Every structure is written in structure tokens, then in C-alpha cells.
Amino acid sequence: MTKKSIGVLTIGQSPRVDITPSIQHVLGKTVEIVEVGGLDRIREEDLYSITPDKGEVTYISKLRNGQSIKMGKSKLLPLLQAELNELEERVSVVIMLCTGDFPTIRSNRPMIYPDKIVSNIVQSLLRTGKLGLVVPLEEQRNTLIQKWKLKGVEYCVEVASPYENSDISGAAKKLKNQGAELIVLDCMGYDETHKKAAIEGSGLPILLPRTLIARIVAEYVG
């Protein structure tokens, strides 16, 4: 049986051994994942060049050495575009491995953006009420609320990084106490263990973007 090739574009360095195995498990053995990262061609001594400026939209990802890194969006976008241009020549569809919004990225292949898919699913599940968001960084609190902007929905946010020893359960419990009816772990870095902790802490429905996106892609390439 011929394998289908799916591209995965991470905002950090590839391979994302902490994420892609979850996606591969859902997609199955007949799908090959081709992975590249926005920081793949940047030397370690030059990583400071993508440090966020004051007030800039900030993302966080993991390096190959296991450490996390903060990145400024304006510096990251051209790096992602360059990697995507080459990746598209090798695959039929690409997953953006980040829940941020990237409206200026241009693609010639079908592009799966987790933020668009998750926000539409949330809108269908929660037409009115309060959405709880768990985010990795304090500096993302306001920018991520601006990203969501779902009509009729209120928001509450707690910070707990997937890349550190954070209290995901406690964050989810705080969101429930603030009136959240549904919680999104708003980063592709959160895994099944984090989801379990959030469920235990809140008893609420939890959306985990990495497995949600993988299941949709599995249907697409079916």
C-alpha cells in the first residue's frame, strides 16, 4: 500500500518528538509525516535573533535539546514561509503545528490551521456562555483572547505551560470556578496527560488541539 505524505510545520525545531507521535498514532501507519520547523536552519548561537520585542505577539515552542524558546511573531513568519515553500513540494496537505493565527502565510497546498478548526468547533458547542482557556505564557493572555472573539462567548484564562512542571489541574479548576463550561488547552504542546489532569481538576469537557486536528486530518486523507 502506498503511503500518503502529510506535512507538519512546527514553529520551533523539528522533529517534535513530544507531539508528532500522538498525531502519527491517530493517522496510522499508512500515512507518512514529513516534518520541518521554522527554526531548523538557525544556528544555536543565533537563536537570540527571534527574541520577541516588547509588546510583540509571542509564541513558545520546544527545541531539539528539550528546552523551550520564546519567539516574536514578526521574526518567525518569514522563517515559516521559507520552510513551507519547500515542504509543499513533498506533501499533499500541511498541518500548522501551532494554535496561533497566521493570516499572512501563503500556501499552495491545503493547510490545516488548528486555531480555525478549534474555534469553529467551540462556536458550535458553546453558542453562549463562558469558555476557559489554558495558555502557556502570561504575555499571551490578552493576545489570545483577541484571537478568539467568538460572538456571544465570554472568556476566562489561566496560565500553565506544557513545557514546564505546571499545575494544569489547578488551572482547570480555577477556570471552572470562574464559570467556564468548556476548556481549550490552547497550544499544540499540551498532551493527553495534560488533558487528563484538566478533566480531573474541573470535570468539564476539554478540547486538546493536537489529537482533534489529527482526527480531522485522518478523515481528510481517509
Rank of each mutant, 00 (worst) to 15 (best):
D53A: 14
V94I: 13
P52C: 12
I112H: 08
K130L: 02
T104Y: 03
R16Q: 02
R41S: 12
D18N: 02
D53F: 10
R106H: 15
L207T: 05
D46H: 15
V221T: 15
Q123N: 12
S161H: 08
C156N: 11
G179N: 04
E138K: 12
R215M: 01
E164R: 12
P78R: 03
G203T: 02
Q178A: 15
L182H: 03
E164S: 12
L47I: 11
R90I: 04
I199S: 11
K130C: 03
Q24V: 07
V36Y: 05
L204M: 04
S119R: 14
Q140C: 10
R141Q: 10
T51P: 03
V34T: 06
K73E: 14
A214C: 06
D53C: 06
S22W: 07
E164M: 07
A218P: 01
E154P: 05
S22E: 11
V134M: 09
Y113F: 15
V118Y: 08
V8E: 03
A172K: 03
Q24G: 02
F102H: 14
G12K: 09
E139A: 11
E44C: 07
I216E: 03
A171N: 06
K62Y: 05
N165R: 14
E35G: 11
E35I: 08
Y113G: 02
I23T: 06
A172T: 04
D191G: 14
G222T: 02
K174Q: 13
S161D: 14
K54V: 05
S124D: 03
K54N: 01
E83A: 09
I11P: 10
S74G: 03
L204D: 03
S49T: 13
L208Y: 01
G189W: 11
V57G: 07
M1L: 02
K173R: 15
T2I: 12
G72D: 11
L9D: 04
R16V: 06
M1S: 13
S119F: 04
D53N: 15
S107A: 15
L212M: 12
S161F: 06
Q146W: 09
T51F: 14
P114K: 06
I206A: 02
I11W: 08
V36L: 05
I60L: 10
T2V: 13
L212T: 13
K173C: 09
A198C: 00
D40K: 00
I112F: 13
V134P: 10
K62T: 10
V184T: 01
E164Y: 02
E181Q: 13
Q178F: 14
V122N: 06
G189E: 12
T58C: 05
I11E: 02
C98S: 13
L77K: 00
E83K: 14
